[in-house]
Amino acid sequence: MTTTVPVPYRVTAATPETADTVSLELEPIERALPAFSPGRFAMVYAFGIGEVPISVSALRGRLVLTVRAVGAVTGALCQLRPGDAVGLRGPYGTGWDLDAAADSDLLVVAGGLGLAPLRPVVHQALDRPGRFGSLAVLVGARSPGELLYRAELPQWRTSVQVEVTVDQPDPTWRGTVGVVTALLDRIDLRLDRTRALVCGPEAMIRHTARALLARGLPARRLQTSLERNMRCGTGHCGHCQLGPLLLCLDGPVIGYERAEPLLAVREL
């Protein structure tokens, strides 16, 4: 078998997260793919429809993918029920550099679906106390109903600082309202020993990075995960170029000192 042929996996659970987002728990039907790590992604094949890149959103035993229905393939994936099969290739791309963060304070900033690829980082902190210096998780969502993993958050809060903000509160929301960067003022940032991991829509990434750099965090201690069109995941289709980078090989997780000048060029 080669890296272009998907390996069959079975859906063992399909959990709705929000109105348009589902978490799929998967197990190999026969052969398993090599182990994934946080930040890396799989190419996921919906039978007869197509294949799309999806980040791993949990790695505790079973592989979990959190998929938002935005089109044909993701729409089909969100319709899957336990027992259904998908094809999987991977793991592809770079992961979050967590070893470098072992002695650091880790700051996770996620916007919208950007929390999915960062959830395994939080899980590591919970499952292996002492893994990181400290961990603060800042989450921005459009509305309370669009907040991912809401049921899990109380458990996270037992050992991790979690701050959530929404753009559009509903009448029951008692939490913070505003952009995710406003949360930076609410946490104790020890800039000399913080590493930041940022994921979300590109404009949110740039805005968050600017706010962190303005506070004095060096760009080399900030990592982000970027999205581009990807057809193969193996560096052969040419779609995921961002200037000199092939994001399926050099990314999706890259250091901000590399990302910043590239994101500054329009339509690169």
Partner: peptide, 16 residues
């Protein structure tokens, strides 16, 4: 053609 896939009763077989 890179591969073919067949589906029957929840089984999925993909062949290069």
């Amino acid at each position: 053609r890179q591969w073919r896939a067949e589906r029957s009763d929840g089984q999925l077989v993909i062949e290069e």
